[in-house]
């Protein structure tokens, strides 16, 4: 079943046209990855879905309902959580407060919020002991965990992740991606934006490759990985050997 569908979506920042008629589908329960070089329009795609940006053409549907042009506060109430590029943890709030506020889209009592927050600390044990630490004091990896936990607090049907591996040490990246794989097991659909194609394709069911706001190619991870042209141009070059092929 189609959970998310973008039809010929175009979006611009002033005179800069960042998306040019993008078509994209995410099925319920899938992990779909959106790849492409810096400036290809990946973040713009997520921003258009979550309502931070209003597309100037095309239509975005979520669970059958048109959501393009809706305000972010409405979109997240419909069940789409967006974990933005750069993590953007609230610097002056504690880890616990950051995570709790992730539930602002749901009308729940404070006790339930505290219970769900405790659940997140169980899912991310590495940040549990920093519960009362302020956001700005955390390392990049810890901030990414907080951002993920905050996103999950919305209990989303669709989770938008923008470059969760950005700036993290390889070991931490693996940890983050194990969690992403686990998130899908709980039934949450994931649209994952990455520059690190190898690791993204290792967890994804399907992938799309963008270039200057247009779709270049899409398909199964294996097919994308073996497409020489795609690898050369967008997935980090031919240097990658066969052994590094995603599992």
């Amino acid at each position: 079943m189609k959970l998310l569908e973008l039809s010929e979506v175009s979006a611009a920042y002033g005179a800069v046209q960042a998306l040019r008629g993008l078509d994209l589908v995410v099925g319920e329960g899938e992990i779909v990855t959106l790849l492409g070089a810096n400036g290809a329009g990946k973040s713009t795609t997520l921003r258009s879905i979550s309502g931070l940006l209003t597309p100037n053409a095309g239509e975005i549907r979520f669970a059958g309902q048109v959501i393009s042009g809706l305000h972010p506060e409405k979109v997240v109430r419909l069940g789409i959580a967006h974990v933005p590029e750069g993590r953007r943890v609230f610097p002056g709030l504690s880890v616990r407060e950051n995570i709790m506020l992730g539930a602002s889209n749901r009308r729940i009592a404070r006790a339930e919020m505290a219970r769900d927050t405790a659940e997140m600390f169980a899912l991310f044990p590495d940040i549990a002991r920093f519960a009362d630490t302020l956001g700005w004091m955390l390392s990049g990896g810890q901030q990414q965990m907080v951002a993920l936990a905050r996103g999950l607090m919305a209990r989303p049907r669709l989770l938008l992740l923008d470059e969760p591996s950005l700036g993290l040490a390889p070991l931490i990246v693996q940890q983050v991606f194990r969690i992403i794989a686990r998130i899908r097991e709980t039934g949450t659909t994931v649209l994952l934006v990455e520059q690190n194609a190898r690791i993204a394709l290792s967890v994804a069911d399907r992938g799309y490759v963008l270039e200057t706001g247009r779709l270049v190619v899409s398909g199964k991870p294996d097919a994308l990985w073996n497409n020489e042209e795609v690898r050369a141009a967008y997935l980090g070059g031919k240097r990658l050997s066969e052994e590094q092929k995603p599992a």
């Binding site: 972010p72 933005p84 953007r88 002056g92 992730g102 602002s104 889209n105």
Partner: peptide
């Protein structure tokens, strides 16, 4: 406080 620190993210959280 969240709004004063990052309005965009605050709106993303609802």
């Amino acid at each position: 406080q969240a709004v004063s620190q990052d309005k965009e993210v605050a709106s993303l959280l609802g």
